[in-house]
């Protein structure tokens, strides 16, 4: 089984796959939730560096994690969004629910990778 998640110090880093559709959504969700439960994760970071495609199934996964985190006072953020993923965030309104590194409307150049620790 492919793995997407990495436990970091204080948060769960989710490497969103190259294509996140309904086909991939199930296993990604299962893996993330397993780790969130087991390690009582309170912060989830979705990293889109390697993502070229996402549809509304992906939105469902992020909204779902965001809601679950909300129940326990945690948070969900997204980082390294390319132009396409930004567009998906904007059209779905996801940018209003999930904090994104550098915002979503910003300039169209590739974002610099300055992950603050």
């Amino acid at each position: 089984m492919e793995t997407y998640c990495e436990l970091k110090d204080g948060y769960l880093l989710v490497h969103v796959p190259r294509e996140l559709d309904h086909h991939r959504a199930g296993s990604l969700r299962m893996e993330a939730d397993l780790l969130i439960d087991a390690y009582q994760v309170r912060k989830v970071v979705f990293d889109f560096s390697g993502t070229e495609f996402m549809d509304s199934s992906g939105i469902g996964v992020i909204i779902g994690r965001s809601r679950n985190m909300g129940y326990c006072g945690g948070e969900v953020t997204a980082q390294n969004l390319n132009e396409r993923i930004r567009k998906i965030f904007m059209v779905s309104g996801l940018h209003k629910i999930v904090k994104t590194e550098g915002g979503v409307a910003g300039n169209t150049n590739r974002m610099e990778k300055n992950h603050a620790e």
Binding site: A25, R29, D55, S56, S57, I59, G60, V61, I63, G64, V91, S92
Partner: peptide
């Protein structure tokens, strides 16, 4: 229960 976002048709119409 499948965590569908309910945005499928909205996406089709948007794109």
């Amino acid at each position: 229960e499948l965590e569908r976002s309910g945005m499928g048709f909205s996406f089709m119409e948007a794109f």
